[in-house]
């Protein structure tokens, strides 16, 4: 299988307001600082990390909703980094996004019908087909056609998210970026929406990039998982492998934070000290060294690159990737 979407060393820096008016070098917020990812057709790539680590920005850059500062974006074997205007609009048909907040992602002044019809109108679908397809889409996401004359505020969060999904699917995309699609929903509704998304993936052969901070949800839905920290990917690998055998201390800390349901199972908790450093002024060397329980001199000086740490292709960016694992065995 070839890669559907590929990010090559993509960076996204936002300029910050400088305190010094005359200073030449503008301070930059490095939201995404050189990530490389590839997503195969039909798979689900989970993108996890704590708030502010740049995962949502990465998703938006991949869709070209934000222009990358540096790097290349390849979609279906084409370099789309410099696509603009009409070229980019045509591409929109094939890549869509589901938003985090179902209360903010629907225009409050449009009925559901208008919201769902808009993408089809933009791409010139005749009215008769549009009406049919809206009914079909509503049915597919578990709503009824009588819902279509209502306004967004008349729906619950879960229903709104279903409408958001229907809108994303209206153009039959291949790639859907799911930007924390369930984190704003009640737990009981989360499962429904996740199941719906899995069903839709099978039915329409969708490729998902699933952005989330809830690790158990990501484990459930993802084939592969990438862990982000301060704009960098620190570990990426096949989902089960990464969850059972995390190599990067940050991944270990994240996974150890998942509540354990088996009370007999002894669990080692890795507790991180401190807060996420500011992406405007990231630490030198390994970005994680300020919070890493295993940090040594080299971590402060040299930034580790991603290296393959298992036969399954799992990669981690840590100087002590192997040693961390050994230490864990010893204790």
């Amino acid at each position: 299988m070839s890669a559907l979407l590929e990010l090559k060393n993509v960076k996204k820096h936002f300029p910050l307001k400088s305190e010094k008016i005359l200073s030449r070098d503008k301070p930059m917020l490095k939201a995404v600082d050189g990530i490389s990812l590839s997503v195969k057709s039909g798979e689900t790539l989970g993108l996890v990390g704590e708030s502010g680590c740049g995962k949502s920005t990465a998703g938006r850059v991949a869709l070209k909703l934000l222009e990358p500062t540096e790097g290349e974006i390849w979609f279906k074997g084409e370099d789309i980094t410099n696509y603009k205007g009409e070229q980019l609009r045509k591409l929109r048909k094939e890549m869509q996004i589901i938003f985090q907040d179902p209360y903010a992602s629907l225009n409050p002044r449009k009925t559901i019908e208008q919201t769902l019809a808009e993408p089809m109108k933009i791409f010139g679908m005749p009215k008769v087909e549009r009406i049919k397809r809206i009914d079909y889409l509503l049915d597919v996401v578990g709503l009824s056609s009588y819902h279509k004359r209502r306004y967004p505020h008349e729906f619950s969060g879960g229903q709104r998210q279903r409408i958001g999904i229907a809108r994303a699917l209206s153009l039959e995309p291949e790639l859907v970026i799911c930007d924390e699609p369930v984190s704003a929903l009640d737990v009981s509704i989360q499962a429904q929406v996740i199941n719906l998304m899995e069903e839709l993936q099978d039915e329409f052969n969708l490729t998902y990039i699933f952005i989330a901070h809830d690790l158990s949800v990501v484990h459930h839905i993802s084939d592969r998982v990438a862990v982000m920290y301060l704009g960098k990917i620190v570990e990426v690998g096949e989902s089960n492998e990464l969850y059972t055998n995390p190599q990067h201390p940050y991944t270990q800390a994240l996974l150890s934070a998942i509540p354990e349901t088996n009370i007999h199972k002894e669990k080692e908790r890795v507790i991180l000290k401190g807060d996420l450093p500011s992406p405007a002024n990231p630490p030198a060397g390994c970005k994680f060294h300020t919070r890493c329980p295993f940090a040594e001199e080299i971590c402060r000086l040299q930034e580790p690159g991603l290296k393959t740490v298992s036969e399954g292709g799992q990669m981690a960016a840590c100087h002590f990737a192997k040693e961390v694992m050994m230490e864990k065995v010893l204790t």
Binding site: L63, R92, Q96, I97, N107, P108, P119, L171
Partner: peptide, 25 residues
Amino acid sequence: TEYVEAARAIGGKHGRILFRHVLPN
């Protein structure tokens, strides 16, 4: 807002986004 971002994501042009989404709200 996210619905304006959504309008961009579905390929809306500036005129459409401004007059159908931004100004009505």
